[in-house]
């Protein structure tokens, strides 16, 4: 497909923002400034950003614990993202749900038990269908999460009722320490689609354009009333399951092979070759993003903690 220079630049900026955000969170964690665990999504940003960019503003999204960056792509203010990371009152969840539960009207939040995403996203899609809304729900999930029963129950119902939901697997090869070969009976998560009569596509998860195009196709499919779609994006988790994980279960050689396929560098080189962007432009953009992130950190670190008045608030509506 042919894309305009402006489109590609915007896509690059989103990818760069995602990388810089994910890296900054890691840095803050090691400085002792994050009051919780960090499950870094460094290396997997093309999957999340490519997926989110294929959505319209009125489409819904659910990310995983792996990708805080997806929330930024989907339009949540960076100030709020850092407030949630630090558990501050001014975040989207008032210090109650951590960075994994950043939310908005269109970002439906996250299930702390893996696999909750399937049922919630399918239910949201049912709601959209009943309300005759022309929107879709994009649900990210990890490879090992497809082994939960909720995956199978949800894909069956979503297909049976032709619900507008896209299941996008962030296959980063690992569920904590377990390689997909040791957790999953099929080679590809997408192989499971056939059991539920759902169309599937396997894409290079480190190619933002490939993920974007596959998701666009799935969105069109779902919006035309044809039901759900299963996309598998094959990528790699550059860091451990969480910061502090020593990665004893895999080799450094394996890691460096994947790092050769860094989604940001690949896209950057491509655009540089095509003359869509220049080195100077990149530096300018990086500086802008860096400033935006630093301002947001400063805002969040200086904002207040939730207090007694918030403790019992919102248990019930």
């Amino acid at each position: 497909m042919n894309y305009s220079g402006g489109f590609l630049q915007n896509m690059y900026v989103n990818l760069l923002k995602a990388r810089m955000l994910e890296e900054k969170i890691v840095e803050l964690y090691h400085q002792g400034r994050v009051p919780g665990s960090v499950h870094s999504g460094v290396g997997e940003e093309a999957t999340f950003v490519g997926g989110c960019l294929a959505l319209n503003e009125d489409d819904y999204m659910m990310t995983t614990h792996r990708a805080v960056c997806a929330n930024w792509t989907k339009g949540i203010e960076i100030n709020k993202i850092f407030c949630d990371l630090f558990g501050k009152k001014e975040g989207t969840n008032c210090g109650k749900g951590a960075a994994i539960r950043i939310c908005s009207e269109k970002v439906l939040g996250m299930s702390g038990t893996q696999g909750g995403v399937f049922v919630i996203a399918t239910g949201a899609a049912l709601s959209l269908k009943l309300l005759n809304k022309k929107s879709v729900v994009l649900a990210f999930f990890g490879d090992n999460t497809s082994n939960r029963g909720t995956f199978h129950e949800s894909l069956n119902i979503a297909s049976l009722w032709k619900l507008p939901v896209i299941f996008l697997c962030d296959n980063n090869q690992y569920g904590i320490s377990i390689n997909i070969k040791d957790s999953t009976s099929v080679e590809n998560i997408a192989d499971r689609g056939v059991a539920y009569n759902i169309p599937t596509k396997i894409v290079d998860g480190n190619s933002i354009l490939a993920v974007y195009e596959a998701t666009k196709e799935a969105v069109n499919h779902a919006k035309s009333g044809n039901g759900p779609y299963l996309i598998e994006a094959k990528t790699y988790r550059f860091r451990g399951h969480m910061e502090g994980d020593q990665r004893s279960y895999r080799t450094r050689e394996e890691e460096s092979q994947w790092m050769e396929k860094c989604p940001l560098r690949r896209f950057e080189n491509k655009l540089l070759e095509q003359g869509v962007i220049t080195d100077t432009w990149i530096v300018t953009e990086k500086n802008k993003i860096e400033k935006e992130i630093e301002n947001a950190i400063s805002f969040a670190e200086n904002s207040i903690d939730p207090g007694k008045e918030d403790l019992f608030k919102d248990i019930y509506a």
Binding site: Y60, L108, G109, G116, F118, V119, I120, A121, T122, G123, A124, A125, L126, S127, L128, K129, L130, L131, V137, G149, T150, E153, S154, N156, I157, L160, W161
Partner: peptide, 28 residues
């Protein structure tokens, strides 16, 4: 049939979908 539906034997999906539907504007 849009508002009154028989479901497969899938209690986890049935209960979880109700949450997804409820947070997006319907009352399951």
């Amino acid at each position: 049939p849009d508002r009154v539906k028989d479901t497969p034997l899938s209690e986890a999906a049935m209960a979880g979908m109700a949450v997804g539907a409820a947070i997006t504007g319907t009352r399951p």
